[in-house]
Write a protein that binds this DNA or RNA. Structure first.
Lengths: 126, 126
DNA sequence: GTAACCGGTTACTAAATGGTAATTACTTAC
DNA sequence: GTAAGTAATTACCATTTAGTAACCGGTTAC
């Protein structure tokens, strides 16, 4: 008889979560999952608050993990575009499900850090 | 006519992703989504590498966001258990989809930071 | 000659995050 | 009287991460 939940200690969730979640990562995947290919500048435009450095870092990481494909045309000025790989597209269902949750919670009046209208407010001690 | 993808700049994905993704957060939600309720110590056991401080931080954040319910029995020693709220359970589909992806990629030989067997290897410059 | 274009890179600094160890509280067992 | 057990909390320090601004390349338009 397995210990409650113990069967998942060594399941492959953790490494996958590290690769596809985290600051900006999931947002980038969501955009590329919704419309591909997207150019570097277009991604910047879709995420006005990300910096070029972080976007580059994330795209490199996703590329290394085989989830995103980078295509460069050697024109002047250069034209670089990104799209999901075949494997990356496996995330489509999960991303769509997350998007639906986002729409639902938004409609229900969810506020980041405060929860839903029916979430009990924890009193701040004086 | 909307600019390519522009319709999602202000969509509610970002705040939701901040609340449910991030180091340990999604893993905690996955465990609570799979079996509830779980006690603090049980969660620690399921994630051998997390520290009590970080687990506490995450649980407080999830509670504030109305996704996780904390129940304390005033016994000695105390017995505190955590479970998903009604709203939190909205994530079930997304979490299950992520889990399926994890199982699939694992079976396909995906290695974190190196991708799949068919992912082109970027040469490390000497 | 110089500014714009695009997709970066680099160096430096600032902020967020995470880990460790000590401490709390109350009761039961040794 | 002291250690164990549970669920934390706190202070402090180390690490990681992110942001800022400057710079690069080659060509075209002014």
């Amino acid at each position: 008889m397995a210990i409650k939940g113990a069967s998942c200690i060594a399941c492959p969730m953790d490494p996958v979560l590290r690769a596809v979640t985290g600051r900006w990562t999931t947002t980038i995947l969501w955009h590329l999952s919704t419309e591909s290919p997207l150019r570097f500048g277009e991604l910047m435009g879709l995420m006005p608050e990300i910096s070029a450095k972080v976007l580059t870092d994330r795209l490199r990481m996703l590329e290394k993990n085989g989830l995103v494909l980078r295509t460069q045309k050697p024109t002047i000025p250069p034209e670089v575009s990104y799209e999901m790989t075949e494997h990356g597209r496996d995330l489509h269902q999960a991303l769509r499900a997350l998007h639906e949750v986002a729409l639902k919670w938004d409609a229900e009046g969810w506020v980041p850090g405060q929860g839903f209208p029916d979430t009990p407010v924890t009193q701040a001690a004086e």
